[in-house]
């Protein structure tokens, strides 16, 4: 069962990475227009530089 001593910190760390990523996405406004982003990827006009 010694492996638990390694696995638990690792799983906690991975979870924390996910949480931090979510926090970053929230800050960047990626949840502001979910419908629009889903449609934008399908449209015909080609963006050289997608607007942020």
């Amino acid at each position: 069962m010694d492996i638990l001593g390694l696995l638990i910190p690792v799983s906690l760390f991975l979870g924390a990475v996910g949480l931090a990523a979510f926090w970053w996405m929230l800050r960047k406004g990626q949840f502001e227009d979910p419908d629009g982003d889903a449609h934008r990827i399908l449209r015909d006009d080609y963006d050289d530089k997608p607007k942020s």
Binding site: E32, D33, P34, G36, H39, K51
Partner: peptide, 9 residues
């Protein structure tokens, strides 16, 4: 100068 549509809102 810039126009951006928000489809959700």
């Amino acid at each position: 100068r810039d126009a951006r549509v928000n489809l959700t809102l």
